[in-house]
């Protein structure tokens, strides 16, 4: 809310502010084979946007463009009005949290240390290199892990945790960033339905606090239960962009057409 007031560049659509704005983004790893072709997406705070698509449709590439890990060859990606693309090997915007498909947790570090990674942008280089994290950050990470239900495993190394516990650690790391946008790639695909539902309710909580959640999935059940906004990608192009959940037939058609 505060940020929106301070930044006049924020796009206003009726009452709804757009936090993440992808405009006509194009990207190709190999020049002759574009992976993302002219995608335009708006994601709003408090909403869960689900990006659907068959494998190879460009979902992961689109998320990496949103994070600034890849730079669009045409078009742009803005978060709260600022371009997210950073120079090669430069610092990326901490307001955009990104959870890759395999979570990207550091296996030899504890759940606590992985959560604290989310605070790195706020910690000076020297203390962070000495692993001297400020006390308030440590307190906050501990409290967050507790709220996510893994407080008792805070000191366990990540390689000793189960799949669902790791997902919670990844969420903790993301929330430590104070994100305005949370990007998650195929987030709960590997989980059993019960754990998946628990994790999704945590994601919903984050959205409830004003985060714009953007996640890719290929599971219709997940979309039906949790999406506020559905985008279907087909061969790198948007074939459907709908608020609310369209019926299954419309989605299937958009996936295949």
């Amino acid at each position: 809310m505060r940020v929106a007031l301070e930044r006049p560049t924020v796009r206003v659509v009726g009452e709804e502010r757009t936090v993440l704005e992808v405009r006509d983004a194009h990207f190709a790893y190999v020049r002759s084979r574009p992976v993302v072709r002219g995608v335009t997406i708006h994601a709003s705070p408090g909403e869960v946007t689900m990006i659907l698509g068959t494998s190879g449709s460009g979902k992961t590439t689109l998320l990496k463009l949103c994070k600034g890990l890849l730079v669009p060859q045409r078009g742009d990606v803005r978060v709260l009005g600022d371009e997210v693309a950073a120079p090669r090997r430069g610092r990326l915007d901490p307001r955009v949290a990104y959870i890759p498909q395999q979570l990207g947790l550091v296996r030899s570090l504890s759940a606590m240390e992985n959560a604290l990674v989310g605070a790195l942008a706020r910690v000076g280089t020297l203390p962070s290199l000495l692993r001297l994290m400020p006390e308030p950050e440590v307190r906050r990470a501990r409290e967050l892990l507790g709220r996510l239900g893994i407080g008792h495993k805070a000191e366990e190394p990540v390689h000793a945790l189960s799949g669902g516990e790791r997902q919670r650690v990844a969420i903790a790391r993301a929330l430590m960033q104070d994100p305005r946008v949370l990007l998650a790639d195929e987030f709960i695909s590997d989980l059993d339905p019960l754990t998946g539902a628990e994790i999704m309710s945590l994601v919903r909580d984050a959205a409830g606090e004003g985060v714009a959640v953007v996640m890719t999935t290929h599971e219709m059940d997940v979309v039906r239960e949790h999406a506020d906004h559905v985008v279907v990608l087909r061969e790198g192009e948007t074939s459907l962009d709908a608020h609310g959940v369209p019926d299954a037939r419309a989605i299937t058609e958009a996936l295949r057409r």
Partner: peptide, 13 residues
């Protein structure tokens, strides 16, 4: 993926 995830939090080199 680990490198990307940690870069994504806004970490310095």
């Amino acid at each position: 993926e680990v490198v990307e995830a940690v870069r994504s939090v806004g970490a310095s080199r």
